[in-house]
Simulated scan of single mutants.
Amino acid sequence: MRQTQLDEFLELEEHNKELEKRFQEEVAKNRAKDRLMFQQSKLASMGEMLGNISHQWRQPLMEISSLFLPIEAKLNLDMPVDNKELIESINKLNDITKYMSNTIDDFKNFFAHDKEKIEFELLEQINSTINIISGSLKSYDIKLEIILQKNPTLLGYKNEYAQVLINIINNARDLLIQRKIENPKIKILITEKNNEVITSIEDNAGGVKIEPIEKVFDPFFTYEKLNGSGIGLFMSRLIVQNNMNGKLEVKNKNEGACFTIIIPKI
């Protein structure tokens, strides 16, 4: 009897070891899938960023061209060029090129790999993010409003926070354009409650028109977007949950959808 019990125990122990091995293999596979999807999300964001660069630089390039057109015309007509006019044009040129250089730094920082969590001010990262995408919003006359009740400091991967913001704002922008919304707008509201930092991104695109609404976070669910990859919002929730110990929620309000990022304060 004892031998039978020992055999059963050893068989059960072997079975448990096999289950543990399979569990570890599945965990490793899921982690590999998450890494792959994260890379796909980054590549999709890179495509978006290239478009945003063109939007961000188009206006400054036009301004540079307009600065020197009058001077060129005077030179061609053998008219005198005032030194004051030249200095003013050069100063404006320096301001524009500095702005373009800062924009490139923002893009470069966005794609830099966050090696460790750091403390960062929320407003600074929001401004950097807006600098990346504002040209794209302006080109479609989309009004962006930012309401900051406080400027908290967070501990985390600041570029990943920026990626989440960009994914949500780009999603709102695409729907505002696709649905041809009059007076399109996006509002970002920063608040604090119960030792949590709450970032709400609200639009007036008419809301999420699927049930259940949480389906927008499913992988490869494109939700009306014609050329979407279906991983932006999925990866955004994954980043907030796994890397920020927070939550990403969505609900419909009066005029459109409202995505809310909830992150614990330091």
Rank of each mutant, 00 (worst) to 15 (best):
N91A: 11
N91K: 14
N91E: 14
N91L: 13
L93E: 08
N94V: 11
D95G: 09
D95L: 08
I96P: 04
T97N: 11
T97I: 12
T97E: 14
K98W: 12
K98A: 11
K98S: 13
K98E: 15
M100T: 12
S101V: 06
S101L: 10
N102Q: 12
T103V: 08
I104F: 05
I104N: 05
D105L: 07
D105A: 03
D106C: 03
K108A: 11
K108V: 13
N109I: 03
F111H: 06
F111V: 03
H113E: 13
D114H: 04
E116M: 08
E116K: 14
E116N: 09
E116R: 11
K117N: 07
K117M: 02
K117C: 03
I118F: 00
I118K: 08
I118P: 00
E119V: 11
F120I: 02
F120G: 00
E121I: 04
L122V: 04
L123R: 07
Q125W: 00
I126W: 01
I126M: 05
S128M: 00
T129Q: 00
I130C: 00
I130T: 01
N131I: 00
I132F: 02
I132E: 04
I132Y: 04
I133D: 07
I133N: 03
S134N: 15
G135V: 04
S136R: 15
S136K: 14
S136I: 01
L137E: 07
L137F: 03
L137V: 02
S139I: 02
Y140P: 03
Y140E: 11
Y140K: 14
D141I: 02
D141C: 10
I142W: 05
I142V: 06
K143R: 11
L144W: 09
L144F: 10
L144D: 10
E145K: 13
E145D: 13
E145Y: 06
L148K: 12
L148E: 15
Q149W: 14
Q149I: 13
Q149D: 15
K150C: 02
K150I: 12
N151H: 12
N151A: 12
P152S: 14
P152G: 12
T153M: 13
L154K: 08
L154R: 06
L155Q: 13
L155H: 15
L155P: 14
G156D: 10
Y157R: 09
N159F: 09
N159H: 14
N159G: 15
E160V: 08
E160K: 15
A162D: 10
A162Q: 15
Q163C: 08
V164M: 01
V164E: 03
L165Q: 10
I166S: 02
I166M: 10
I166F: 06
I166Q: 06
N167Y: 09
N167D: 08
I169T: 05
I169K: 06
N170A: 01
N170R: 09
N170P: 00
N171T: 04
N171V: 00
N171E: 02
D174V: 13
D174Y: 12
D174Q: 15
L176D: 09
L176A: 10
L176H: 12
I177H: 07
I177D: 07
I177M: 07
I177K: 09
Q178R: 10
R179E: 07
R179H: 07
K180Q: 15
I181Y: 03
E182M: 08
E182H: 06
P184T: 04
P184D: 04
K185S: 11
I186A: 01
I186G: 03
I186K: 00
I186H: 02
I188Y: 04
I188N: 01
L189S: 08
L189H: 09
L189W: 07
T191A: 05
